[in-house]
Design a protein around this nucleic acid. Structure first.
Lengths: 156, 156
DNA sequence: GAAAACTCCGAAAATACGTCGGCTTGTACA
DNA sequence: TGTACAAGCCGACGTATTTTCGGAGTTTTC
């Protein structure tokens, strides 16, 4: 996929197309065209333009982690004894599949991660045997998400 | 979409199908079938089983916020003067389109939100005019993500 | 005002989707 | 051992979608 990253102008029709596909990536292009009152070919051409502009980075199936037994989400702030250790720490965090996000942040911590685990016991085990074991990690602070009340992409 | 939520067994072929679609929701079923050495019909039947089991919750187009000028991600811990105020606060947070996630968490804060804004100035403006303005918010702590180094779904 | 650039449409070809009956395999049970 | 049942796959089929193409209308550029 090429991303020319050229300046692009997105009009209302583009937004409408994207709004449909952001909700359901498999919605037929023809159906979107019918809904907007333009031909399927036009929708297709606009999508190609949007893709080549780099605005669309891909599409994903979303799976429900609870069905897999993953129901505990947590955020962990990580203190590193030297900020320099960041690249190596991230490399090791990447090996932990439960780590979904990893941010290099301002503030007290060096790193903030979001992770998804089965239950509190699983979380504790990850902390003790995986995360605290990473070289350079001096301390962590854990925040368990009791309930995720909003989860969405940036709007158009 | 029905979700029987029945117990389900996911074998290696199911995982392989999901792995493909989690990366690219528009990948043709037939192509996946060819890659796995089974017919398109079989892939289709498996997908129907996975859908009705509730494992698949949908599909999304992923857009690149940077192309839209959104390049600053931040996490904000919010203190509420009374935890009771949570539902009303969340309702108001939902009205702020830059708020992508909102978690009711253990720990110091009542709420942890993730938000995406254009730049630091935009962030400051959101804090001052939108978030601090919510009734019940007594204090906030902001962590700016200088770099998101991991971003993924739970693995199979 | 001509040329270039956009954007759309309709049609056609290639491809994919979704369903069906039938085949094979494995299991349960008498 | 034999039968019945369920699960999973296949090929084929009709329908629907994708993708491409040329052409036409409109706007922008110079």
């Amino acid at each position: 996929m090429k991303s020319n990253q050229e300046r692009i102008t997105i009009d209302g029709i583009d937004k409408e197309i994207l709004r449909h596909l952001m909700e359901d990536a498999r919605k037929p292009i023809l159906e979107i065209g019918r809904k907007l009152g333009i031909s399927g070919a036009a929708v297709h051409q606009r999508l190609r333009k949007l893709e080549s502009s780099g605005l669309i980075t891909g599409s994903k199936f979303v799976i429900n982690p609870k069905v897999l037994g993953y129901s505990t989400m947590a955020f962990i702030g990580i203190y590193l004894d030297k900020a320099m250790r960041n690249p190596e720490a991230v490399k090791q965090l990447r090996e932990i599949p439960e780590v979904l996000e990893c941010h290099y942040t301002t503030g007290n911590w060096s790193i903030l991660i979001k992770l998804l685990c089965r239950d509190n016991e699983h979380l504790m085990q990850l902390l003790n045997t995986q995360i605290q074991a990473i070289e350079g990690v001096s301390r962590t602070e854990t925040f368990i998400s009791l309930n995720q009340q909003i989860d969405r992409q940036i709007g158009l």
